[in-house]
Amino acid sequence: MSVGLKTDRQGRVFIAGGGSRQLRVVDGRTGRILATYEVGRPATVVNDVVLTPGAAWFTDSTQPQLYGLPLGPRGELPHPREVVTLPLGGEWAEAPAEGFTTNGLERTPDGLGLLVINVYADGGSLYRVDPRTGGARRVDLGGAKIPDGDGALLLGRTLYVVQQFQNAVDVFRMDATGLRGRAIARITDPRFRVPTTVAAYGDRLYLPNSRLDIPPAPGTQYDAVAVRRVP
């Protein structure tokens, strides 16, 4: 299983392995698996990944913690014993009985923190997490809720949050710290069929349609939709 992914300047693909509980690093040119790290416990769902200058961070949708792969000065991958498990504390709220809580994540505009989507807390919230301590603070989104928040993409100070079953992308303008944001737009498109994540290329955003609203079948069609970015 492969869910979230990010590529680095070395052409490596960092993959969140979903229910396989794996963090994988793959050579994007050859497809060769460079490293595999197993984390969590049987209920773990490794959902999304974001790259920072010193680490790759992954969410766990069923446990209040993140996983980190610390990278060396030249991007060297860590030994398995160096994988970081970062418990989430502070204002973080977890769904009861190992329910689904954490989804996508991004960096804060100032690069000092992580923005983590929590689909359970207060009807769907965004948190700023200190990657050194795991301390979490709820981000003030001006009353906006993200109960279906999935993939997240930060471009400058503009944060795009994919609300999958709403077939929409909510757009926020964030402050530098990532502790405050205001809704500036909502992107919808009749071609959306439960998009789950988003990537940017040029002046467009690209969203894969997951079709999570129907049972998969041999004839199920999958595609991606391109829409214009918010200026």
Results as ranks from 00 to 15, higher is better:
residue 97 A to I: 07
residue 106 E to R: 10
residue 74 R to K: 11
residue 43 A to K: 12
residue 44 T to C: 13
residue 127 Y to K: 06
residue 96 P to T: 06
residue 40 G to H: 03
residue 86 L to T: 06
residue 100 F to A: 06
residue 181 G to H: 10
residue 126 L to M: 07
residue 154 L to W: 14
residue 122 D to F: 03
residue 142 G to Y: 07
residue 70 P to R: 00
residue 224 A to P: 05
residue 199 A to T: 15
residue 27 D to G: 06
residue 79 H to K: 13
residue 14 F to D: 04
residue 26 V to M: 15
residue 73 P to E: 15
residue 79 H to E: 12
residue 53 P to D: 12
residue 121 A to V: 05
residue 51 L to W: 02
residue 33 I to C: 04
residue 41 R to M: 14
residue 72 G to S: 01
residue 66 L to P: 12
residue 168 A to M: 02
residue 87 P to V: 07
residue 96 P to K: 04
residue 12 R to N: 14
residue 218 P to E: 06
residue 8 D to C: 05
residue 40 G to D: 13
residue 190 P to A: 05
residue 55 A to R: 11
residue 140 D to Q: 08
residue 134 G to N: 02
residue 10 Q to T: 11
residue 114 L to P: 08
residue 137 R to P: 05
residue 64 P to K: 13
residue 121 A to L: 01
residue 218 P to H: 07
residue 149 G to E: 12
residue 94 E to M: 13
residue 36 T to S: 14
residue 37 Y to A: 09
residue 36 T to K: 10
residue 30 T to N: 11
residue 188 T to G: 14
residue 157 R to G: 08
residue 194 V to I: 15
residue 191 R to G: 11
residue 219 G to S: 15
residue 174 M to H: 04
residue 14 F to I: 05
residue 231 P to I: 01
residue 230 V to F: 10
residue 108 T to Y: 00
residue 25 V to R: 00
residue 96 P to A: 02
residue 84 V to S: 09
residue 215 P to Q: 08
residue 217 A to Y: 05
residue 32 R to W: 03
residue 119 V to Q: 08
residue 12 R to V: 04
residue 3 V to P: 06
residue 17 G to L: 13
residue 231 P to E: 13
residue 103 N to F: 10
residue 121 A to S: 15
residue 176 A to D: 15
residue 187 I to G: 10
residue 80 P to M: 08
residue 23 L to M: 11
residue 68 G to P: 09
residue 148 D to W: 03
residue 93 A to D: 12
residue 9 R to H: 11
residue 108 T to K: 02
residue 36 T to C: 13
residue 174 M to E: 00
residue 225 V to A: 14
residue 82 E to A: 15
residue 165 F to T: 11
residue 109 P to A: 01
residue 17 G to F: 09
residue 231 P to M: 01
residue 59 T to H: 04
residue 54 G to L: 09
residue 212 L to S: 15
residue 90 G to S: 04
residue 230 V to I: 15
residue 70 P to Q: 03
residue 224 A to G: 14
residue 114 L to K: 05
residue 18 G to E: 13
residue 187 I to W: 01
residue 84 V to R: 12
residue 198 V to K: 06
residue 34 L to V: 08
residue 197 T to Y: 07
residue 221 Q to Y: 08
residue 9 R to W: 07
